[in-house]
Write a protein that binds this DNA or RNA. Structure first.
Lengths: 338, 338
DNA sequence: CGTAACAAATGAAACGATTCAAAGACGAGT
DNA sequence: ACTCGTCTTTGAATCGTTTCATTTGTTACG
C-alpha cells in the first residue's frame, strides 16, 4: 500500500460504486447508514486521502486564494496575511502567500502561478502597474482585491489605509513639536510611500518656514534604513534634519540603530524620529518609536470579505474600503519642549 | 472569452492536435518551427493559461512543498521560510506555508491539506507528536524533513540547531557575568524550549551557588512576554532573579517592555536579559538584546536540500544536519562588573 | 522508382474526482 | 397483483492535461 488509494480502490474494497463513495464524502445524507459505515471503514483501512487536483479539475475552481505581499518579513504584512488566512479559513478556503519582495518580475511570477492554480481570487499589494493584468484576470473570472492601495472602483475592490492622511499626521506631529527641517526616508517609487510623502509635504506646506528633504532609501528594510542612518551621521550637525519621518518602521528602526550606535546624535533631542505601521517591535525599540498605526487585522479580514462580495456579484460590483490611520506618540518624538 | 481557454481550444484555433500543443509547451524541440509559432500565436490570442490541477492529476504529483511552522509572525520562522522558498524556486517548486500557531489541531489540519494537495514533500516544525503521521506519509511516498528539531535518523531527515548547546551558552554567559539566581522564561512543553532549558540547567549545575527558576510563559510572543515581565515587576527586589533567559527574542522583548515601562528595574544592572534567535529587531531594542543566533538561511536552504535527497533516494536514506548556535552579547547582558 | 530513415504530427487513453440521469429496491395504498 | 413514490445506488461522462504508440510527411540513397 505504498501508493495512495483512489476513490476507485475504496469502491472496490467496500463493494460499492465510485459514485457512492463520492456521495459518502460529499452528501452523507444521501447514503444509507449501513453503506456509509462500510465505506468509511474501507477509507480508513486503505488510508484514502482525497486528491485535490482531481477535485479541482472537475470543479473548475480551487478553494485557494492567492495573496501577494511586498515583504513577508515585514510584520505589517505578516499580520495582514494572518488575518486574511483566518478569515479565509472560516469560508473553507486556503490562502497561498507569495512574496514579491517589491520586485515586479517576482510579482508577475506569482500572478502567473496563481492563475495556473486557478485561484478563487487574488489579493495583491502591487509593486508595478498591474491594472492591465487585473483586467485580464477579471475577464477570466478571477476577482482581485487590492490590498493597501486604493483602487479605481470601476476596476476592482480594494482595502487601504489613507496613506496621505497618515503622512500628514506624521509630519504635522513633527512640526507640532517644533521641528522645521524635516527629512523623509523611503522609496517614493512605491505608491503608498509616495502618498505618505505627499501628505507630509502638505503638512510642511502649511508652515511657512518648514522644509522637507527626501532621502531615497532604495529598500524598505532595517538594513537599508541603517545605510540612510549612516549617511545622516556623517553630515555636519547643521546639515542634519531636525526630524526624520520614515515610510515604515523597519526603516525607522534601521535609522535608529545607526544614530544610536554612534553616540553623537540623540533621539529625540537632536533628531526626532517617527515610523509607519506601528509594528509590535516599535514600542520596544532603543528609543520607543512613534509611529502611524494601521489596522492590519481589519485590512486582512476586509480583503477577504470584499473578495467574497466580488465572487457573489460575479465580479461586477466593486467596493473600496479606506481605513484611517492613527498617530501613536512615543519617546522618539517626545516634545523637545516637554 | 470570459472563460479560460483550454489546450483543446488552442489546438482547434491553431489547427493542430492537442498533443502538439502539449509538445510546444513541454518539448519545444519536438515541434517544427512553423507549427510552434502558430501554436504560440494562438496561445497568446486566446490567453491560454495551463491548468495546474489537470497537470498535477496527470503527473500524479505536484510541484509543491509544504512547510508548517510554529508562527509566521516570528521573524525566525519567516526567515527560514524565505530561505526555503528561494531554494525551492531554483528547483522549480513552490512552497506553501502553513502556520500551526503551536496548535496541534491546526498542525494536523495543514498536514491533511498538504496530503490532499499531494505535495512533493513536507517540511515541518512539529508541535505535537507527529512521528506516527510522518511514518504514514513516508509509506505514501511523501518525504518529510523536520525543521528545527532533531529527528530519529531511522525515520526521517532533519535540520536543527543544537538547542541544548544554545541554552548552555546563554546560561553560562549569565553566570559568567556574575549572576547566580537565574530565571528561564518559555513554554517547556515545546521540545526546543525544553532543550534550551536543559542546557541552561546543565550550566547552572556547574556552579555551586547558582539556581534557575522556570517561568512558564504560556506562549512565545511579545504579548505573553509582557505578562511575565509584569509578574517580575510586582515581585519585591529580593525575590527577583538577577538574570532572565527567554526562550526566544519575542518573549525577551516583551519582558523588556514591562521592565523598562516601570522605571524601577534596570537592565542589565538589576536584571540581565538574554533572548534566543537573534532576530533583526534584537539589536534595536530599548536595551540592545543579547541573544543566541541561529543560522536561519542555512536551515531553510538545507531543509530543501535534504528533501531533495530524500526524494532521490525514494525516502530510504535519511540525514540529520545539526548547526551550532552562537552567542551574541549586547548591552542587555553587559557585565555588571564592566 | 522504391524504400529506408528520420522528423513531425496525431489522437485515444489515462489520471481521480464529481455529477446526474437512470435503474433498482422497497413499502404503502388501492 | 399493480402502481406510485421515496430512498439508494449505479456507472458513464466530464474536467484539462500528458503520454505514447501510430500515422503521416519528407528526404536521401540505391
Amino acid at each position: 500500500m505504498s501508493q495512495t488509494a483512489s476513490i476507485k480502490d475504496v469502491a472496490t474494497h467496500a463493494q460499492v460504486a465510485v459514485g457512492t463513495v463520492s456521495n459518502v464524502l460529499n452528501y452523507p445524507d444521501r447514503v444509507s447508514q449501513r453503506t456509509k459505515e462500510r465505506v468509511l471503514k474501507s477509507i480508513a483501512e486503505l488510508g484514502f486521502v482525497r486528491n485535490d487536483a482531481a477535485r479541482q479539475l472537475r470543479a473548475g475552481q480551487s478553494r485557494t486564494i492567492g495573496l501577494i505581499v511586498l515583504d513577508v518579513g515585514n510584520p505589517f504584512f505578516s499580520s495582514v496575511a494572518r488575518a486574511a488566512e483566518d478569515a479565509a479559513t472560516t469560508l473553507g478556503s486556503v490562502v497561498l502567500v507569495g512574496d514579491s519582495g517589491q520586485d515586479a518580475s517576482r510579482e508577475a511570477h506569482y500572478m502567473d502561478l496563481f492563475q495556473e492554480q486557478r485561484v478563487q481570487g487574488l489579493l495583491i499589494s502591487p509593486v508595478g502597474d498591474v491594472g492591465q493584468r487585473i483586467d485580464t484576470l477579471r475577464e477570466r473570472g478571477v476577482p482581485t482585491v487590492l490590498v493597501d492601495e486604493l483602487a479605481d472602483t470601476e476596476r476592482c475592490s480594494s482595502v487601504s489605509v489613507d496613506d496621505e492622511e497618515g503622512g500628514y499626521l506624521a509630519a504635522k506631529h513633527l512640526l507640532d513639536i517644533g521641528r522645521r527641517r524635516l527629512a523623509f526616508v523611503g522609496t517614493p517609487s512605491i505608491r503608498q510611500v509616495a502618498s505618505r510623502l505627499k501628505g507630509a509635504q502638505r503638512a510642511v506646506g502649511e508652515v511657512s518656514d518648514a522644509s522637507i528633504e527626501v532621502l531615497d532609501s532604495e529598500g524598505q528594510t532595517v538594513l537599508t534604513g541603517r545605510k540612510v542612518g549612516n549617511s545622516l551621521v556623517e553630515r555636519s550637525p547643521e546639515e542634519r534634519p531636525e526630524a526624520v519621518f520614515c515610510s515604515n518602521d523597519l526603516l525607522a528602526l534601521g535609522v535608529m540603530q545607526s544614530l544610536t550606535m554612534l553616540r553623537t546624535v540623540r533621539i529625540p533631542e537632536d533628531i526626532a524620529l517617527i515610523g509607519y505601521d506601528d509594528i509590535d517591535f516599535a514600542i520596544s525599540a532603543v528609543v520607543p518609536l512613534s509611529s502611524i498605526r494601521q489596522p492590519t487585522e481589519a485590512l486582512g479580514r476586509t480583503a477577504i470579505e470584499l473578495l467574497a462580495e466580488e465572487q457573489e456579484s460575479g465580479g461586477t460590483k466593486h467596493r473600496s474600503v479606506v481605513f484611517t490611520p492613527e498617530l501613536v506618540v512615543r519617546q522618539s518624538t517626545a516634545g523637545a519642549d516637554s
